[in-house]
Write a protein that binds this DNA or RNA. Structure first.
Lengths: 216, 216, 216, 216
DNA sequence: GATGAATGAGAATTCATTCAT
DNA sequence: GATGAATGAATTCTCATTCAT
């Protein structure tokens, strides 16, 4: 409305609106799945209208993909921060395991989105340019730790970086992703605070024990 | 009037119809999630009509719960068959890990149903009487193995049966459940035949190494 | 199954089954209206099956008509019993009013069926042979009372038998038929026991006062 | 952009659409009852689609409740207009009876809706906030007339306002509500023009005679 | 006479999406 | 950029009725 910085303000508003839509959409998709999420519900939970969702994202599917892209981008941003280079191999792999644990603990919506995306056989990820080859950095990191550990004699088990990544991820992911069925069947909420420290140590112990391997 | 009994035949047909509905429904729910599954599509893939689904199961939700109940029942049936009692502790826990791996490998629809159910926060499992306390048998088994291992000195790590069950399950579950996003991001299909034997050995090695623990 | 009285027994059973169906159907139609009544529900509340309803009555509509016919037949049976001939005109018309009151009080399902039938513009009554000209006897009775009252000088108001029948019926019918909306709007259940005697006297007073008329 | 305001026009359209739906729905519900009414049929009789019914009213039941609320609101609006305060008691009660007669004569759909609602035991009225305590104004009016009549000596019968309201309403309501069964059984259409004046006078005569009471 | 399984036609409701302003 | 009204195409679910035995 003022004479000068109108366009930039508008842009900033537009960005804010888009960000708000993405935030609400992430929650809605995470809670109800792709098909179960309601465009109406997303709109109802915002101060903008449903029309804006289509204006900015074009369709429910494209909105969902944008949510996925943002979630993965945040994960990789976190992983980039990890500095395990200066640590000894055993300490390094344990640090990676614990950081992964912490990250999964902190980003439960992301975990749910990944689970949802697997139900849809990753069809949306494959449609997204932004999500191709997003995995390589962490694999490089693991490779370097494994090489150092084998060289130093700390690790004995011959292991592949992708396998080790899966070993770590599976534990951290399952604890969050399957908390509800696990809780219903075994009567224990693995994400409750009283189990946190023990399970965090466990994933580190597990991967170190596996790599040390010895005479199993 | 003929020598063959009439009523049982009708009954058998009814049972067959119900079983067929459950089979097709399991595939449809596993592929599309609860909200994404279509009652029309389930009916279209059978020699029965949509009306029968409501006749036998009452609603989409009750059909879904029946599918879940059947899937879990089959899992427990498999677990019941496991005979690890006569094995030494190390061999026993490895056998359990490998049987779990095999079962998850063989029942991928079940894995997907569990993932779907977690997205819905296990609300349907909690509604089902049949699915309460389904977890206890396997926990008893693990407890006995852990006790024997500690007594014999084979195991060193103090571990809880539920935690160990999660340790084993998470690896086997993740490999199947997250195969699509994992494949899209890392370019490797962990469920492909060429990875099977290696990963099957890995879950056994991992749990044994963890329990042996030693001087981590 | 026995050799001799098989057929009569069968017949008696058949009559009993039909009577039971009619009884349950009357309740169901009275409670839910014609369209709202469920054939399934009627069957579920009996020891016979749904097939029998169609076997004996052919369709939902014919069952409904049979229910109506039975209900009206019972009403007329009651009216036939009324003996007011030997009473003086004032006592006679009051007796008729009170008998009508009692009858409506006692046969509330019948009242509801009549209300339902009016919603459907009496289309089913018109289809039934059994229900044609069912009204004449009571009109004859009223006519004779009115004639006697005018002759004796007890009644002054020139009144038509049909009008007087409506005057009496409307009060008795409304009290039962509209009890729910009246209760909701005015906070009084006109069918409650504490109002019964007062309202029963009121309908007699009203019709006598009207016929006495005098210098209104 | 034009001189006429845009938003109000849209709003007016919305209001018009809602009003049109209510109008058609009232006819459909009145003619077929709640269960017998068809949402499809309501939509087919308008320039709007069925979807709008759900957009504005949410469900068939809520539409029905809205119809009821509107019908009752109109009744009370009519009653508010009645000015009998300046009349002598006898003239006043007769005026009220005749106005009630006229109103029922004019709003036959309303009568049917009330009959339908009674079949459903007033469950919808009870769900509606708007319909609570709608009855009081007319009861106040009757009370004042009765008091004045007793004071002046015009009325002799001790009568309760609710009872008198029922006395008047029952006659007017029955004549319209039961016209079809009454016509089928007695061969006279009480709502036909040739009976109108006589019956209108009759309800006034009846209530005055009742209240005058005398030596019954 | 009796029974449970089966069904076609239809009814209520939902949902992503677009239009007029 | 923004808004509320509008909508077509499904989608779940229901119901009276009939069939096979």
């Amino acid at each position: 409305m003022t004479s000068q910085p109108a366009a930039p303000e508008r842009q900033r508003d537009a960005e804010r609106t888009k960000a708000e839509i993405l935030e609400v959409a992430r929650q809605e998709f995470a809670r109800h799945g792709y098909a179960g999420a309601r465009v109406d519900e997303i709109a109802a939970r915002m101060r903008t209208t449903k029309r804006m969702i289509y204006y900015y994202f074009g369709s429910k599917e494209q909105l969902y993909i944008a949510v996925l892209e943002k979630a993965y981008a945040e994960v990789r941003e976190t992983e980039r921060v990890i500095e395990v280079e200066h640590l000894a191999p055993v300490a390094a792999i344990r640090a990676l395991a614990e950081l992964t644990f912490d990250h999964h603990d902190l980003h439960q919506d992301f975990i749910k989105l990944v689970a949802i995306e697997n139900i849809h056989q990753a069809e949306h990820i494959r449609k997204s340019q932004a999500l191709a080859n997003l995995g390589t950095p962490v694999l490089d990191l693991i490779s370097r730790i494994l090489d150092a550990g084998m060289a130093s004699g700390d690790f004995v088990t011959e292991a592949d970086a992708i396998d080790v990544h899966m070993l770590i991820s599976s534990f951290c992911f399952f604890r969050v992703a399957n908390q509800h069925t696990f809780g219903a069947l075994f009567g224990r909420d693995m994400t409750a605070p009283e189990h946190r420290a023990r399970l965090r140590a466990m994933v580190g112990d597990m991967v170190v024990a596996y790599l040390r391997g010895a005479d199993i």
